[in-house]
């Protein structure tokens, strides 16, 4: 369950710093436009600029390289995989060739260059996402989604999933430890069988908990309506100033990426 420990890393978003204080709508605007520019770029310049600026911003709130590295490693490896796949299928100039089990494979220069662009887009895009996740809680994202008129039902389900995820992770880890102490993971088949009963128990517990949660919520007045009790405050002067800075910054990046290069 090592992978799930990263989910708990949203504690960064609960910290009090200048990035977490920025209004969620302003951040979503910057990240949204940034992601669009990132995939629109035909050159590695824009993705690299997003990568570096996001990295610097995260450094200012003392997010360590190790923390970022753990998050970045999988997407970057995926980027390398894609670079190789595109390198094998696009272009004319062969830089490396050979056969594998009778199957002819050739890496081409043009394909590898396109792959490199994709790799930088992965780096830039993921860093932008990390900038959002390290500075914004899911509750604020739900509030922004409410403001953007996303269907309430979806926001409710998202809130429920996120709210109970941590409880279920904890319960799963406790059950896994118990199974391990009873030699539940000594062979492959035993492992699979243990995972089966673990998944079954998880379903049973989640359904019982859902019934209890609904009873408790109904007693407090829940009638199937919205569960978010906090609402976003109107944007103030400082938010508009940051929004304007974001627009200028994004325009500058676009100019650098699309016009100069």
């Amino acid at each position: 369950m090592e992978i799930l420990k990263h989910v708990v890393m949203d504690h960064f978003a609960h910290r009090d710093n200048w990035l977490t204080k920025i209004d969620v709508r302003v951040k979503l605007f910057y990240i949204g436009v940034g992601l669009i520019l990132n995939i629109l770029s035909n050159d590695i310049m824009i993705p690299l600029v997003f990568f570096v600026t996001s990295l610097i911003l995260l450094m200012t709130i003392k997010v360590s390289f190790v923390t970022l590295g753990i998050r970045m490693i999988m997407p970057l490896l995926f980027g390398v995989f894609i670079m190789l796949i595109v390198g094998l299928h696009k272009g004319e100039t062969v830089v490396l060739s050979g056969s594998f089990m009778g199957y002819e494979l050739a890496l081409r220069k043009e394909g590898l260059l396109i792959g490199l662009l994709l790799f930088t887009k992965v780096a830039g895009g993921v860093m932008l996402l990390l900038l959002l996740s390290f500075t914004t809680t899911i509750t604020k994202i739900c509030m922004a989604a409410c403001w953007m008129k996303i269907p309430e039902t979806l926001i409710e389900v998202l809130s429920f999933v996120y709210r109970y995820l941590f409880l279920l992770i904890e319960e799963t880890e406790t059950m896994m430890s118990s199974q391990r102490s009873r030699l539940g993971y000594v062979t492959w088949f035993k492992t699979i069988k243990s995972f089966g009963s673990l998944a079954g128990t998880l379903i049973i517990r989640s359904i019982i908990r859902a019934e209890n949660a609904h009873t408790a919520m109904a007693s407090r007045g829940y009638d199937g309506g919205r569960i978010l009790t906090i609402q976003l405050t109107p944007l103030v002067r400082s938010d508009y100033a940051i929004l304007l800075s974001c627009v200028i910054l994004l325009a500058l990046f676009s100019y650098l990426g699309f016009v100069c290069f």
Binding site: V157, V161, L168, A199, I203, S206, A210, H214, M217
Partner: peptide
Amino acid sequence: GFLPLVGLVGAA
């Protein structure tokens, strides 16, 4: 109580 159920099963 369907939404809490969907949320919990989704989390599971």
